[in-house]
Write a protein that binds this DNA or RNA. Sequence first.
DNA 1: CGTATCCTGACC
DNA 2: GGTCAGGATACG
Length: 260
Amino acid sequence: MPELPEVEYAARQVRAAVVGRTVRNLKALHASQRRRLSARDCARVRGATIESVDRHGKHQLLRLSTGDVVVVHFRMTGDWLIDAASAPVPKFARVTLELDDGARVSLVDPRALSTVQVISGEKAFLPRLGPDAADATVSVDTFGAALARRRVPIKVALLDQRVLAGVGNIYAVEALWVAKIDPRVVASSLTHARQARLLDAIRAVLAKASRSSGQYRDADVGRFEVYDREGEPCSRCSAGIRRITQAGRSTYYCPRCQRR
DNA sequence: CGTATCCTGACC
DNA sequence: GGTCAGGATACG
């Protein structure tokens, strides 16, 4: 489950492989991909040069010489696999990008929920995203103002990409633990002090994750404080970690030291 | 505002 | 063989 640090790592990986290269071929191999990435879109990017790769939240943006942008989102299980176009198509490859140097970048995704689309400029979706969660210039006031408008539990608000783009389930849960805030608290009710503590906590958990390899592994789950630790003792106060469902997603928290 | 939907491997 | 997870979005 790639979160922002993993997407940052993936963006660096693909950047090294594609920048300055020309697209020989873009293919959607899976029916679910073809809904957003038509044969026409694929034909349109053929021959274009990839000028840069940016990331905003968990979106990766491949900017082309034509002004078009290939926008990629890994969702749950997407990842890049880079090899030679002459090699067999990798298992679970959903979209492939072949380059003029013979390299092939495959979007591998067992669950096929990833999305790839070609847009002519980013305006089509960027207004829907808040500032990037890793953007250190976001002020407490900006963050707080976004929360003040939401009458949903703070955990649910953190998952809303219009608040901060790139905060996923794991780090939302971890940040609330670090900030000692009960995930069920209504977002708009947070005091300024708690908003500041939470923003710091989000930055801390993302920075910590970025310092590790940046590649998600199952073993990493064991390093989280509360995520996937239902029933285990809180490392701060030893109370049993609880799991609840909020907006259809698992929330883990310490019922003793995360306060309302 | 909440909920169904996509998709398929993993797990019971 | 049925159920579930889960980010984002569409819908009620």
